[in-house]
């Protein structure tokens, strides 16, 4: 049986969610791994790797009192615990445009077809309410090489009517 679980948690943001949840996990014998925690539109979201020497049911029961009290939606999946073999990004793509529907779908479809495996994507809306812009940053692995991505974006730029700015920057990681 795997000892790693992926915990997904969403609830209305308030002070102390992280402290309460992680204290309950710690007191229940858990060990924490990678995490992504973020406030998003009034909610607080947690995605967290948890090492727990028990069953999914036992882990769910461990968090149940806090989930009830803080009104948190919690989802738990068994996971493989692959932190030691995690992938490093070798390309970063910055995208910005006047905000409209379909930007993410278009850009990521082109990139996926050219071999991009997305490891991290963040996006936000800026500008005034009557003139918003969309901004997105992607990090990933160019599985068919960075050249393939560049070529795909260039072809798209030449044939597309859209004015979406896309900038691709290689990420070189140096071990000093």
């Amino acid at each position: 049986m795997t000892q790693w679980f992926m915990l997904t948690l969403v609830g209305k943001d308030r002070i102390g969610i992280v402290a309460r949840v992680t204290t309950a996990l710690y007191q229940g014998g858990c060990h924490l791994g990678e995490a992504s925690m973020l406030r998003m539109d009034g909610n607080f979201t947690i995605m967290l790797m948890v090492h727990f020497p028990g069953t999914k049911a036992a882990l769910t029961a461990l968090l149940a009192p806090i989930a009830d009290e803080l009104q948190l939606h919690i989802h738990i999946d068994p996971s493989v615990g692959e932190q030691t073999t995690r992938q490093e990004p070798n390309v970063q793509i910055s995208v910005h445009s006047a905000d409209r529907a379909g930007i993410v779908a278009q850009v990521t479809s082109i990139l996926a077809a050219a071999g991009l495996n997305i490891l991290d994507l963040e996006s936000d809306i800026g500008g005034h309410a009557n003139n918003p812009f969309y901004i997105m940053q992607i990090e990933g692995v160019a599985t068919r090489g960075i050249e393939a991505l560049q070529q795909a974006l260039q072809t798209w730029h030449q044939t597309s009517e859209q004015t979406i700015e896309v900038r691709l920057t290689p990420i070189t990681t140096t071990i000093f």
Binding site: T84, E88, T172, T173, T174, I175, F176
Partner: peptide
């Protein structure tokens, strides 16, 4: 901005 690793900090960048 650059991505770095270090011989003294293995398996992390």
């Amino acid at each position: 901005i650059g991505r770095e690793g270090c011989m003294s900090v293995p398996d992390y960048t």
